[in-house]
């Protein structure tokens, strides 16, 4: 089975892109399952279930960062999709800019909007650099010159394959579909791509006290390097 992992800032167009992509893949006879990982609200699972009649689920990460949560739940999700005999498409909120959700053997897609400002590609770290392909949405809202400069900012930050789309009208989507069709199947064991997140830290877990003296795990002070406190 294929594992397609789609990350990107909120409102970048992940759901709109996936709808276009999944409509085409389903028409070609592929079986798909959809999982949304979000912090506290998501309704995409209902959208995909009702629009396409495919198995769809959501997970709220709540106190955890969504990428930490994804590490914890994806093993089960892959088994679920396997039982459904389907490829798994995961949409994650990608709010934690320290971590990235991609798994070795998956196809990592980062979705960025062309309207998001020129510095965005430099701000989102591993979400971009560990992806396999960057999809730039909303090209209908910017000039060609701006689109080309945005693209350069993406590829300067990470030398990725870039596909530019107008996801509302489905323009450019066919190229992305062809790329997904070429993606390999995942193999076991599933491992996070690149270096895993530092830890499920006490901050992610909801401890709000300011100051490293209140926390455990991998820490730092203003002047120190990283150090470890705990068992």
């Amino acid at each position: 089975m294929k594992l397609i992992m789609c990350a990107g800032p909120p409102t970048s167009g992940k759901t709109t892109v996936l709808r276009q992509v999944m409509r085409r893949l389903l028409k070609k006879g592929r079986r798909l399952a959809y999982l949304k990982i979000d912090v506290q609200f998501a309704d995409e699972d209902e959208l995909f279930r009702s629009e396409f009649g495919i198995p769809a689920r959501k997970v709220y990460s709540g106190e955890l960062c969504p990428d930490h949560a994804s590490v914890l739940v994806l093993g089960d999700a892959v088994k679920w999709a396997q039982k459904e005999n389907a490829d798994l498409v995961v949409e994650t909120a990608g709010l934690c800019l320290r971590c990235a959700p991609y798994i070795t053997g998956s196809l990592g897609i980062v979705v960025l909007e062309a309207t998001s400002g020129m510095n965005l590609p430099r701000k989102i770290g591993a979400m971009l650099s560990l992806a396999d392909i960057a999809v730039v949405t909303k090209i209908d809202l910017v000039s060609q010159a701006e689109r080309e400069v945005f693209r350069a900012n993406v590829t300067d930050a990470a030398p990725l394959e870039v596909v530019e789309v107008d996801a509302l009208r489905g323009i450019g989507i066919d190229r992305l579909v062809r790329r997904i069709e070429r993606a390999e199947d995942i193999g076991m064991p599933l491992m996070l791509k690149g270096s895993p997140p530092v830890s499920v830290c006490t901050i992610c877990a909801g401890k709000r006290d300011i100051g490293s003296e209140h926390h455990f795990g991998v820490l730092r002070t203003l002047d120190s390097d990283l150090f470890y406190r705990g068992e």
Partner: peptide, 9 residues
């Protein structure tokens, strides 16, 4: 294009 503004900061 028909755009009459830039978003680039």
């Amino acid at each position: 294009t028909q755009h009459t503004g830039f978003l680039s900061d």
